[in-house]
Structure formats: structure tokens, C-alpha cells
Nucleic acid binder design. Structure first.
Lengths: 336, 336
DNA sequence: ATGAAAGCGCTAACAT
DNA sequence: ATGTTAGCGCTTTCAT
């Protein structure tokens, strides 16, 4: 595939003038069916996508829609928070952020992304979960020679610049918090083995007895609230009920807490609960959640920085930002 | 103010070449302090902003950063949902969405917006709350002759195209739901008088006795969760406690529910609760909230449509989309 | 129905 | 330190 296919290239292949190609691209009338087809064939053969900048300049329209909305700082969700941070970082540098939404289920989403990248010619691209783990997306970006930064926990660090949360310290603080409150029987509900292992090791380091820890694996596909309720039901049925539970997401913790109230338990008196994310839900439930917050705003800013000042050597750079452990009233001294 | 100030205009006023102006704009070295100042003066005198498209084309960089994130459908917040809808609607039409974040507190935010609008040359702009009620923003857009659509409830309908939720039907369903369950003493906690009045009238129409309704005004400035807790505390202290409460936001309902559990009340047995938004929080709390959902995705799509096909006559158009009333278990037959 | 030429507003490369 | 020239890739306008 060639790097930058132009209108002219298409015109040459189709054996028509550039203007005719332009007519086809813009769906103007006055094009015979036969030439239209010839042009369409040439376009898809070359993978042509019009250059947005050139188009905008000539047609004096931008093909961009703006949306004016307020800065929302508190109570946000993961992706929204990343977007906010990136928008601000861009603005400070005279850039703008464009969201490329991808549904990974749909066939053709990768192709659509490629088309979009072709025409937008981004200065750089930030890749979040789950695209940051998607081989096809990363391959595509590299093939198109587009600078990109992955955001979130990633393996193969050499592959590109990345910005990740560092959970070790936060999880250690959490472990010490629970142990110092007197918790011994602690349940860990996890989706990723990585985080389970980190927390397990932190708890042991904080003095917990490995034999008293319980691990419950949960599917990422499941709705977190339902998962939290099922988790609660499982825990309440246990002969030796833990006094504290860590869940992999605030939503799951919320489901757990709801189930507990419903069944006459009092949180945190009967069960301490720890969430993850510090999203909107963390403060909406009662009691508000002890949780862990990723520095999403700073992570997004760091990603923009990496994108904008190129590495001196060719090596992939990595920025690691510590998560923040937040104590609220969903954890307390166990009653037993 | 002139419509489209160009580099050349600045150059002429400053008495230098276009290239020199370009150097100043791009912060290149090799510009004497005196000419730099002269150029800067000319730039601000003319209100010059470089044309993004021209710049991109010449420099072969877009000044745009892309961010690839997944489609998130469930559990979203108001602005995020609007953005999602607009992003998709744009994509379907070969456009892209750029977020212009505005913090209305800061001085200079309007100027920044103006600069951004100048250089982006949006095909159209979607204006959400609270900017949709901001005279300065609307004046600016009109003065710059930029097509815009307001989204959300607006007055002065003649002023521009708009897309609004229609709450009457949804609130009527809510009113009938409560009355049919047997609720008579109902509290309405509101921020906007408009919505309070709508609900009041709906309740009366559904057969409620106006004398049994209680109205509690809340400040929009207050954190909704705290507001909900205070609301709960006020309601519990009442001699004649209502059997149902409507709150203006799910967050406030969440605060209310938390306070209730904490003080030994059972929701919905002792008190039915109704929220508004159907955001992430609505399903995270226990019991999940009976609430009202604005069709944010459709509203955003409608806004993009209005932007793209111009009105035949010059009249402002208005699209009204009904909200959806959603029954969950936070409302039930009163126990008394 | 199709083509040729000019130019959108800026920056790159090369002057001086 | 500053100016000149030639494009960037498309659409417009005007031919044919």
C-alpha cells in the first residue's frame, strides 16, 4: 500500500481527470454511470481517502462538528475522564482532540478506523483499553507510521510509548489499611490475575496469612453490578465469612453493598468493602467506598506530552503514575 | 471585526512579509524582538487566528490528536452520552466531532472559545447545557455566522434550531405510577421550577391532592449527593412523612437512599424514591431507581441532522423527543 | 458529461 | 534577521 494516495493517482488509474474523481467522491450529479464505476474501482484499489486539510481549504468547510460542553471534573467514568484530560492537554498546546470510537465487535471497524486515520492525519493517537491490547490496531498504526501512545496497563513495553498506572504502592496501602484494621479473612474478587497477584502479595507483606485469603475469579463479560450481587450471595453463604472484600470495580462493590443491605447486613459493620476506580458510583452508594483511583487526568496529559515531543533515541518511553488509595467509610474495624 | 483575517492581512498591517508573521505565529527563532512585537500587535488588533486547514495542508500535520476508545453504551453520564451520540452521528456522515470544553467560571473562556471557533471553522456546533443558556456564547456564534443547535430544554425557541426532551408524557406516567401505587403524600425536590410545575400538574391530573404535595427547593450549586442526604434528613424529621419522594437527579436519590438505609429505613418499604437521568448511579444503588431517561443518543443525532441540512425557510426548527419513564424497585406500594 | 486552470491560506526551502 | 518562491491536495469556476 502506498503512503499517500492522491486524487490525481486515482484519476490516472481510472483514466479520467482529477475533477471527475472529485465529482464522484462528492456524489455530484452529471457523472455517467460507467465512469463512476471506473472511478470507484480505482478508489478502492488504491484505498484512496481524501485529505481533510486540502478539502477543507479548498471547500472552506472543515468536515468537523464542534460540541461545547462544560468541564466536568467530579464523578466521572474512566473514558470520560481520559478524554477530559486529553482535551485540556491538547488545548493548552493549541491542538484539538478528536474521538475515534471503535466497537470491537463489529466487522469492518478496523477498516473504518483506517479510513479515518488516513483522512485525519493525526499528529498522534492515544490508544486506550481495549484497543491498547489489540494487535490489529497497533499493527495498523505502525504500518501507517502514526505516532501513538498506549494508555493503561500494557505488556510488551518496547512496542511504543506508554503511560500506565502504578498500582503497587496503592495496593500496598490498601493491604496495610485492612490488616491494621484487624481484618484477617479477606476475599479478593478479581478479573485480571495481575491485580489479584499484586494485592495478594501486598496483603502477605502487610502481615496477612495467605491461608485466610479467598480468591474469587469473575468474568469481565459480566455486568459488574450483577457480578457484585452474586459475589455477595456467595460470600454470605460461606461457613467462614470474610470480614472484608476487595472488588475489581466500584460498580461491583455497589452491587455487593446493595445485596448486603437487602439481606440485613450493615456495611461496614458486618463487612468491609473496597472498590476500584473512584468513579461516580463510589460516592453515590452508602457507605461511600474506600477505593483506588487512577490518575486519569495526569495520564492523559502525559500521553499528549509523549506524542508531542519525540523520543531522542528510538526507544519506547514509559511513564508510570501512581494510583491513589482513598479511604472512605465502607471499610472499618471488623465487628468480630 | 472582519470575517476572515489572513496571514497576509497581518503582514500588511505590521509592514513585514507573510513569512515573518508565520515565524512569529510558530514561535520560530530568528525574529528580532521589535518585529515580533509589531507582528503581535497586528495579530491582536485584527484578531488573527491561523486557518487550521491551510496550516495542516502546508505543514502536513493536522494539529489534531486522535483518541481511540470503545463504544460505551450503558451506565453513562449526561455529557458523555451526548458526545457518544454525536460522535456516531458524525461518523455516519463522514464527519468528526471535536469537543470544545468550556469552564464558565474562568475569565477568558469566551475568548478562548472564539479563537478556537476561528481556527476550526466548524461546519456546525452543538451547544449543551449550560452554554445553551449563555447569552455570550450564543451571541458569539451568531456574530461569527456559525450554524449551531442547542440541545436540552431552552426558552427563546426562535433563536436557533434546538433539540429538547419532552418531559410531559414521562412525568405524567410517573405521576400515575405513584398515585396508582397508593401514594398520596409525595415530596418533590426540585432545582428548576419548570420541572416542579410539570410534575405537580401531572400529579394533580393523576388524582393526587395538591394539599398533600410538598415542595422542596434545592440549589443547583450544591453537590447532589449531599443535597439528597439533607433532603432525607429533612423528610425523616417531618411530622407527616411523605411515602414517596421525587428528586431532580439520580445522584440526589442515591444520597437520599444512603441516608435512609443508614437510619434504619427500608427503601421502598418505608419510602418510595424516584430519580432522574438513568445514569450509571441509577442501577448501582440498591434498590435500583425508578427514574426518567432522556433520549440523549437520539437527541445528539437529531442535532447533527439539523446542523447538516439547512432550513429551507429561515425559521428556527425544533425537534422534541420524549423522555422514557423507567420503573425499577425503588418505588412500591406504601406500607401505611 | 468531462476537462483545464486558478487558487484556498499557509509553510518549506531557499534565497539574501 | 528577513523576503521570495513554490507548492501542500483539493474544489471552484469556467471551458468545452
Amino acid at each position: 500500500l502506498s503512503q499517500h494516495v492522491k486524487l490525481e493517482d486515482v484519476a490516472r488509474l481510472a483514466g479520467v481527470s482529477a475533477k471527475t474523481v472529485s465529482r464522484v467522491v462528492n456524489g455530484e450529479a452529471n457523472v455517467s454511470e460507467s465512469t463512476k464505476q471506473a472511478v470507484d474501482r480505482a478508489i478502492s484499489a488504491l484505498g484512496y481517502k481524501p485529505n481533510l486539510a486540502a478539502r477543507s481549504l479548498a471547500a472552506s468547510r472543515s468536515f468537523l462538528i464542534g460540541i461545547i460542553s462544560p468541564t466536568v471534573d467530579n464523578f466521572y467514568s474512566y473514558f470520560h475522564a481520559l478524554h477530559n484530560g486529553a482535551i485540556r492537554a491538547c488545548r493548552e498546546r493549541g491542538l484539538h482532540l478528536v474521538a475515534e470510537e471503535m466497537d470491537f465487535d463489529t466487522r469492518g471497524s478496523l477498516q473504518r478506523l483506517e479510513g479515518s486515520l488516513r483522512q485525519m492525519r493525526y499528529d498522534g493517537v492515544i490508544v486506550t483499553h481495549p484497543a491498547n491490547k489489540n494487535k490489529h490496531v497497533l499493527d495498523l498504526l505502525e504500518h501507517m507510521k502514526i505516532r501513538y501512545v498506549r494508555i493503561g496497563p500494557v505488556s510488551d513495553l518496547h512496542r511504543s510509548d506508554s503511560v500506565s498506572p502504578d498500582e503497587t504502592q496503592g495496593l500496598q496501602q490498601l493491604a496495610e489499611h485492612l490488616v491494621s484494621l484487624g481484618h484477617r479473612h479477606i476475599a479478593i474478587a478479581y478479573v485480571e490475575a495481575r491485580r489479584r497477584n499484586l494485592l495478594r502479595d501486598s496483603l502477605v507483606k502487610a502481615g496477612a496469612d495467605l491461608r485466610h485469603l479467598q480468591f474469587v475469579s469473575l468474568s469481565a463479560a459480566q455486568d459488574p453490578i450483577t457480578a457484585g450481587r452474586e459475589l455477595a450471595s456467595g460470600i454470605l453463604a460461606l461457613p467462614q465469612r470474610p470480614t472484608a472484600v476487595f472488588t475489581y470495580a466500584d460498580d461491583a462493590a455497589a452491587g455487593l453493598i446493595g445485596y448486603a443491605w437487602e439481606h440485613g447486613l450493615n456495611i461496614p459493620r458486618d463487612l468491609s468493602v473496597v472498590g476500584y476506580d473512584d468513579g461516580q458510583v463510589a460516592q453515590a452508594v452508602w457507605p461511600p467506598l474506600t477505593t483506588i483511583r487512577e490518575p486519569l487526568d495526569e495520564m492523559a496529559r502525559a500521553a499528549v506530552s509523549l506524542l508531542l515531543d519525540p523520543a531522542k533515541d528510538g526507544n519506547a518511553r514509559r511513564i508510570v503514575l501512581p494510583v491513589k488509595f482513598i479511604v472512605r467509610s465502607s471499610t472499618a474495624v471488623p465487628s468480630r
